[in-house]
Amino acid sequence: MIPAPFDYIAPSTVAEAVSALEEAGEDAKVLAGGQSLLPVLRMRMADPGVVVDLGGVTALRGVREEGGSLVIGSMTTHHDVMRDPLVHHHAKLLAQTARTVADPQVRHRGTFGGALVHADPAGDLAAPTLALDAEMVLAGPSGARVVRASEFFVDYFTTALDPAEVLVEVRFPMFTGWSAHYEKFNRVAQAWSVVGVAAAVRVEAGAIAEARVGLTNMGSTPVRALAVEQALLGRPATPEAIRHAARHATEGTSPVSDAGADIDYREHLAQVLTGRAVTAAAGV
């Protein structure tokens, strides 16, 4: 199908983008990489009067170190995230996860920030973003504000972003020296995750000194597997200890039954994939 008519605005700065969104109000949609928005427009599941294209806002692209944080611009593509040496060095989990997103064509067009703002529970990048304690920097008519990842994801396809705000960048603490792995189950190649698990660990003297675990598609938002993290803390980095900790993966989750899987199967997958992800991350 052909999208319904809309006005197209292509700002070159964040300020211009915010101004356009403020003027258009809730009748506007933001175009980042377009991998989610364009299909919705073509099917006329969305009918905005205005589309604001961030493709020309070069300040939103790139990866850098700043103030002890790893900073990823919202318009940085999945391909660039997975290939960037700073990401590999300081947040390997993000590079691991970005590599699993869809297919090469989508990874070259889709953007890191666009995927987070879309907030699809089956999207892969939100879980590691939550697990790594990221902060979102938002720009709006009243200026900039910072929202923690734990408060950014609100519900299905819903975030804390206001209609006239733009996600500028995502800031991560440095996880230098940590190992990581993203494990997901999908029924066909390039499909959305039925369940996914993002795991990052720091092993010291044969024991797990620290761990971060995030779950994909185990609720209306990504879930931090805090019970798993606690069960891993100080335990030997062995398959047996990891399997025992992985039994806690369903705590605090609220999976649903749908065409992809029923609740029981998702809970089973969460435990199995958590064990696999942590085992791979720990290198055992």
Rank of each mutant, 00 (worst) to 15 (best):
A20E: 00
R99D: 12
L132W: 03
P104I: 10
R109Q: 15
V284Y: 00
G219E: 02
T77S: 15
S74N: 04
V272Q: 09
A139G: 12
V50Q: 04
K92T: 02
A46V: 15
L54Y: 04
R224C: 04
K184W: 02
H88W: 14
E151Q: 13
G33W: 03
A199N: 04
A198Y: 10
G55Y: 06
R83F: 06
A205W: 02
T97E: 01
D264S: 15
H79V: 03
M43F: 15
E135D: 12
S12Q: 11
L21S: 04
R171L: 11
D53V: 10
A245I: 04
V166Y: 01
R243K: 14
A59H: 11
V201Q: 05
E240Q: 14
V147I: 13
A189D: 14
V71M: 10
A95R: 06
A211N: 08
H78F: 11
F185P: 02
T58N: 14
E66Q: 12
G49K: 12
N186D: 13
G140I: 03
H89C: 04
G140E: 03
L161H: 07
D162S: 14
V87F: 06
V154K: 11
V194E: 00
V256Q: 10
F157A: 07
A246R: 03
A280R: 14
P104A: 09
V81Y: 01
A207V: 15
A180N: 05
